[in-house]
Design a protein around this nucleic acid. Structure first.
Length: 250
DNA sequence: CGGCTTTGACCGGCGC
DNA sequence: GCGCCGGTCAAAGCCG
């Protein structure tokens, strides 16, 4: 996954309970940058990548990385502000998958697997805007297609603010583009259902997205930026040297 | 040759 | 104290 930063791998370990190794990366955009990230594939569905960021960048960020960071962080912040029972969380998780998946263009889920919030992006079928710049429906949803008030356009924005609000950690789930969408979705759903905190947070996030849609409509253009990064399969940061930054730490 | 990945060793925290 | 486990280090190898 390319998220805008240049990363250097410094370790890999087999995690207990997960057949897939966990890789450790450090930001190499600037000397002494303390930001690290962990990347691990989901044990239930290896097409899902779980990325955890920690620390603050100590250097300026390219615009693309800023967009990515904003996209992922704001969702996390929303998770922290919501509250809902696990039952409701499951219901909302189902709502989310039913709402987003039938479109088959893309999907984004948000959750907070305690103690750290988690953002899930399913962009399996979302076209790469770098390759298909004319595609605008990265987040097709059965909502009124108001460019800036639909949940689809909100998702990136929701992601886009938590990084600026002292989020201790941020995690992201991402599906590989070559993934089978149905299996990936089922695995993701299973993961959500298995973790009450996860579901509760997810539900809260979705509720916030929908309920707050009319209140947030100031940066619809981050949508494409997010899709850009999330769908960029470059493995060596060749995507314009973009940076992800402002991940805060405790 | 420089930068990166790989991979086994090492270290510290934690539970028993 | 001991073992397990997650995270980091660093040497070796790979690649452009």
């Amino acid at each position: 996954m390319t998220d805008g930063c240049q990363w250097r791998k410094y370790g890999q370990k087999m995690a207990k309970g997960n057949p897939c190794p966990r890789a450790y990366y450090r930001c190499t955009m600037a000397a002494g940058c303390p930001v690290r990230k962990q990347v691990q594939r989901c044990a239930e569905d290896r097409t899902i990548l779980v990325t955890t960021y920690e620390g603050n960048h100590n250097h300026p960020l390219p615009p693309a990385a800023m967009a990515m960071a904003q996209t992922t962080s704001s969702a996390a912040r929303m998770l922290l502000s919501g509250s809902m029972s696990s039952t409701d969380g499951l219901m909302n998780a189902n709502f989310l998958t039913r709402t987003l998946l039938p479109c088959s263009s893309s999907m984004a889920t948000i959750s907070a697997s305690a103690p750290f919030p988690t953002v899930t992006l399913d962009l399996t079928h979302s076209p790469n805007p770098l390759q298909f710049p004319n595609h605008q429906n990265h987040f097709q949803l059965p909502f009124p297609p108001h460019s800036s008030s639909s949940p689809a356009s909100l998702l990136p924005q929701i992601f886009g603010q938590a990084l600026y609000n002292n989020q201790s950690k941020f995690s992201g789930l991402q599906l590989s583009q070559d993934a089978d969408p149905s299996s990936s979705v089922s695995a993701a759903t299973a993961a959500i259902a298995a973790d009450p905190n996860f579901t509760a947070a997810l539900a809260a996030a979705i509720t916030s997205i929908i309920g707050g849609a009319q209140h947030q409509n100031n940066n619809a253009n981050t949508n494409n930026s997010v899709a850009n990064n999330a769908n960029n399969n470059n493995t060596n940061g060749s995507n314009n040297n973009i940076n992800t930054s402002n991940f805060s730490e405790n």
